[in-house]
Each structure stands twice: as structure tokens, then as C-alpha cells.
Nucleic acid binder design. Structure first.
Lengths: 220, 220
DNA sequence: TTGCTCCTCACGTCACGTGAGGTGGC
DNA sequence: TTGCTCCTCACGTCACGTGAGGTGGC
């Protein structure tokens, strides 16, 4: 190990610097707030300074990821941190929808749904559809109002498939390891890569549209 | 026009139904709140019911889009709605960065940046870099920590390029029209399509990862 | 001594949600 | 009369941000 390695603790400012590139909206006051809510419990120096260990930083990373990717409220995040092995309590929304419910909730018709199923955009489990199917159907319904058609949807699907494959490749070495928690770790990594790729994709499209004079508008 | 067309007004519940598919987190209380903040001003029926005209709904759509896509606070959205033609006041962040500032802010080194420029992921305007360059560099820096390499980035870039092209095609007919505000309308449409495609992409990747056992994690 | 980082605590703010107690049109 | 949609107003909540007034280590 080099002289720099094996730091046992980090000050709150250092923690901030480590997290900033991945979570641009983190702040010192936010970290302190998360502690006040009992979500992290860093050690303290004799003079009262917070001392974050790597495990604390991992915990912060998890919390920030859950907020950003899953829009989870802190109450729920806390529960999951506290009781990681309990089965997920049903979260209000039904996990599954019938075909009828899906059509109604998304506001699309039979033919559209059939088309989506043909393209592989929507899949069912037996006779049921999941929340993902609803999200897909809603996005497609909104897109169709702008005249976006099948070939665009196919392109999005193809890009999503390629990205999934790549993520699986990156994560594969982790999965080859043994031990408890390996799958959770792989899944967590996969999620983060997916989020970061998505952000990259969004920024690139935005920049290209701006260049074409189709950037963010200020309507009248 | 059919019997159903040419509705002059919509009740708040009908407005909600129209917006839900595109903005899943809208609610009646949110719409009422936006009115209380002076962002929309629907007419009233004699009995006090809010009566939204198409123009009011457009305005809501604009507000919700600005919140969702640009994370703008309502204060700023209100300013833009009130004074749509004023030049954008400098918004705190500098619009441009030097090369040095970009490297520091993103936490990457010279070679990485040179690579990003080679791939066309980052571009400069003269000697300056924009906020988009910073966002790209940050995302790439975070991705590299997970062992994601050049070919992944190239794939993301290619997908973003294809999507941009498709959006331009969809918007082209609008641009061919004449008249004031045509470009703004085209840009607004382009932005919405981009957002919806992004959401679709995200949902598809998420669903595929879940199927592969790499879905959202509950860490210990 | 001077910066610099960090601390607590009270209060403010932003964007809504909730619930009580109503009214109005088919 | 019965549902149903809609109304106001007060209060609550969630996730922080701000600012005053400090302390601690090189």
C-alpha cells in the first residue's frame, strides 16, 4: 500500500468531494441532514468532527442512489437499510395489472397494445402485466401524440437491448465471484451503470438538439 | 367537427386525466397549488368550479415539462412565463469553462479528456467548454470507476446520434411551416420527444435487468 | 495569529398532501 | 335523495438550505 492508501476516516468535505461527480446535488447540509434522520452514523473525533469510514460512504452512496433512481422517500430507504432481508411489503400500487387495467391506465387501445407486444416492448407474465409494462405503454402513448412511429420505437428498443448486454458484460466478473451478497453487489453496480449511461445519453441528445437550434425552449 | 370536439372548458379532473399519461406525478392538489402560486389562472364557473381552456392546459404542460426536464424551481418558471422575451439572466453557473476548469470540475485527467474529444463525446467552442461537456465528463468519470470502457461509450454515442436524427425527422414538418413561434414550437416538441424516449429507454433497460436478476437492490 | 474546516441550533423555504366541512349539477 | 365532482382553508410534511455564533488543528 502506498502512503496515501488505507485512510481509515474522511472528513465531511472529503466525503462530499468523493460523491459529487456521481451525485451532483449532494451537499454538506444534506449529509448532515441524513445523519440527523438516522440514516448514517459516522464516528466522531474527540473534537466533534464527523469521521466517515468507507462503510459509511457506501451507505451514503446507496441512499443517494435509491433517491435518484427509484425516487424513494427517506422513510422507505430507512426501512430497507434497517431490515434488509424482509420481503418487500406491498407498496400501495398493485404489482400486476390485467390487460383491461393496463389499457385503461395507459389510455391506449387494443391494437396499440398488440403492436407493442409484437415489437417486444411489452411482455406479460401469464395473464398479468407489470408496472414496467404500464410505464412503457404510457410513454408510447405520449410519443404517439407527437407522431412518433414504430421505427422509432424499434430503434429505442434496439439501443436498450444493446445497453443491457453491455451492462451484463461489465458485471459478469462480479457474478463469477463467490460469497454472500455477490448478486446484490452485481445488481447495485448494474443499476448505477444504467443510470450513468442514461444520463450520458440524455446529455448527448440535449447537446445535439441545442446545436440544431432545438434546445431548451422559453415559451411565450 | 364532431359532437365531441370544440370543448371550450375542462374540469380539473379532466385536465388531470389528460396530463397523467405524460406526467405521472401530477395531482389535483398540485394543479390547485400551481394556481395559488399564480402560475395558471383558469376561469371559474358561476358556482366556483375551475374551467381550464386549452391554453391553460398548454401552460400547465409547459410548467410540468420545465420542472421535469430542467429541474427548474417555480420561481424561475414564473419569471420565464411572465417575461418570455428577455434575455436569459446569467444563472449563477458560468456558461463556459476553460480546459483546466473542466478537468478540475470533472475530476479527470488530460488523456481521458483527449479521448473523449476523439470520440466526439465532448466538443469545444473555440477554447471554451460548455456545461454539457462537464456533464458528459462527469458521467464518463463515474462510469470508468465501474470498468466501463470506450466501446460502451461509443455505443451510447451512436444511440444518441440515431435518436437525434429521428427527432429531427419528426420535427421537420413543423419547421417547414411559416410564422412566429414556429421554431419554439418545434424545439418544445423535440424536447418532449427526447424526454419520453429517454423514459422509454430507461424502463426497457430496467425491465431487462430485472429479468436477468439484476433489478433494483435492497442492500444490507 | 491566521486560515481553513468543521460544529450546533434555530429558523426558513419549497412544493406540495391531507382532511374537515362544505356546495352544485344530473 | 343519491352520487359524484368540485370547492376553501388550515395545518402538516418532507427534504433540505441558511445564517449566526461558535470551536479545533496545522
Amino acid at each position: 500500500m502506498s502512503a496515501e492508501a488505507a485512510r481509515a476516516y474522511f472528513g465531511i468535505g472529503e466525503v462530499l468531494a468523493q460523491l459529487r461527480s456521481e451525485f451532483p446535488d449532494v451537499s454538506i447540509s444534506k449529509i448532515r441532514f441524513l445523519e440527523s434522520e438516522g440514516l448514517v452514523e459516522p464516528a466522531r473525533s474527540p473534537s466533534g468532527y464527523r469521521r466517515f469510514r468507507p462503510a459509511d460512504i457506501e451507505r451514503l452512496r446507496y441512499i443517494l442512489t435509491a433517491q435518484r433512481d427509484n425516487y424513494l422517500p427517506l422513510r422507505v430507504i430507512r426501512e430497507r437499510l434497517d431490515a434488509p432481508d424482509e420481503p418487500r411489503p406491498s407498496s400501495g400500487r398493485p404489482a400486476a395489472l390485467t390487460r383491461r387495467e393496463l389499457l385503461d391506465a395507459a389510455g391506449i387501445d387494443e391494437e396499440s397494445l398488440a403492436e407493442l407486444e409484437d415489437y417486444g416492448l411489452v411482455r406479460r407474465n401469464g395473464r398479468q402485466y407489470g408496472q414496467d409494462a404500464l410505464a412503457v405503454a404510457r410513454a408510447v402513448a405520449a410519443l404517439s401524440q407527437f407522431g412518433v412511429q414504430a421505427r422509432h420505437l424499434r430503434a429505442v428498443k434496439a439501443a436498450a437491448d444493446r445497453e443491457t448486454t453491455l451492462i451484463e458484460q461489465v458485471v459478469a466478473p462480479v457474478l463469477r465471484q463467490r460469497g454472500p451478497g455477490v448478486r446484490d453487489k452485481a445488481a447495485s453496480t448494474a443499476q448505477e451503470i444504467a443510470t450513468l449511461s442514461l444520463r450520458l445519453h440524455a446529455v448527448l441528445v440535449e447537446a445535439a438538439l441545442a446545436e440544431a437550434g432545438l434546445g431548451q425552449v422559453r415559451l411565450g
